[in-house]
């Protein structure tokens, strides 16, 4: 019983970071109706910015965090300009493949700068786990969860209490109508990309600081986890993205504890597959048109 509760708590903590990644995906996907496979790799580039500062200039934790976010935003805008902005309507699949090509590019760029397989990343806090009765809670996990919830709240506020958010929701609901009522869709899309990359940057920083190491594989990891959590939660729903992330985290930790790492991944994919087949809209999503097939 204690183990069950402990694992659930751990799962929620880890799931919070998945939720953040899914949140960034949801913002981009909602605005563009297109899949940005490069989302994870742009976060990885941000992480490499931070790591270079940490390794070569001895930067502190906050400076590293800022560098990760800034690096992710810069490379996110690069991806938007190259893979999404120039593509005409109906070329959603070209955008997706293009973002995949840029993924390869970013990964090689990262390896050129730091050629080893793994590099250290500064830890969030050092210190023993907190004991709450029979349960153990890692302080850095707690910070990760708090950070994720705070960020989600900020995103929710920004979406529903600001003009930017209003425009963004208008574009998500119907880009043509939004354009007709005077929303500058092009500018908004760039801003949305930057915002999504910043969210991803924070998520990436939190995950890496908990793991205390970074590899070029982080890009793929982030893309996959974000995508899975988004699809479980439901396309185009912000609470859904978070919930999907938490569910994925809990499922992973439990199945890892019960059956080991391989079965954990098997389970995660199975849950995803089952959700898609049984409930294509995910937990909270609605079925929004996906501009992936070239006729959409």
């Amino acid at each position: 019983m204690i183990d069950f509760i402990q694992n659930t708590i751990d799962g929620v903590m880890i799931g919070a970071s998945y939720g953040l990644l899914a949140l960034g995906f949801t913002v981009i996907f909602g605005v563009m109706r297109r899949l940005n496979l490069s989302y994870g790799p742009t976060i990885m580039i941000g992480a490499y910015f931070g790591t270079v500062l940490y390794l070569h200039f001895g930067a502190g934790l906050l400076a590293v965090a800022a560098a990760v976010v800034v690096g992710a935003v810069i490379s996110g805008i690069y991806v938007e300009r190259l893979c999404f902005a120039p593509m005409k309507a109906g070329a959603g699949i070209a955008s997706m493949v293009s973002s995949f090509a840029i993924w390869m590019q970013l990964e090689q760029a990262a390896v050129l700068v730091l050629p080893r397989h793994t590099y250290p990343f500064p830890p969030l806090v050092t210190g023993p786990a907190l004991e709450i009765g029979p349960l153990l809670v890692r302080p850095d996990h707690l910070i990760m969860l708090t950070g994720a919830l705070l960020l989600a709240a900020v995103v929710q506020l920004a979406l529903y209490r600001t003009r930017f958010g209003l425009g963004l929701r208008a574009v998500i609901a119907n880009p043509i109508a939004a354009n007709l009522v005077g929303v500058d869709v092009g500018r908004l899309v760039v801003l949305a990309f930057a915002a999504a990359s910043a969210i991803g940057g924070v998520a990436g920083f939190l995950v890496l600081a908990v793991d205390q190491q970074v590899t070029p594989m982080f890009g793929m990891w982030a893309t996959l986890k974000g995508l899975i959590a988004m699809m479980i939660g439901g396309l185009g729903s912000i609470p859904g993205a978070l919930l999907g992330g938490l569910l994925l985290g809990v499922v992973e930790v439990h199945s890892h504890w019960l059956f080991g790492p391989q079965v954990r991944d098997l389970f995660a994919y199975f849950v995803l597959f089952a959700f898609l087949v049984a409930r294509p809209g995910g937990l909270l999503g609605r079925t929004i048109d996906v501009e992936l097939s070239h006729r959409a």
Binding site: Q262, V263, L266, F270, L276
Partner: peptide, 23 residues
Amino acid sequence: LRGLQFAIATLAFAEMVRILFEL
């Protein structure tokens, strides 16, 4: 399933197959 949902479902299937071969 259409579009992205189909794409991700096939991805999930392929990864399940790969992990089953690992086991």
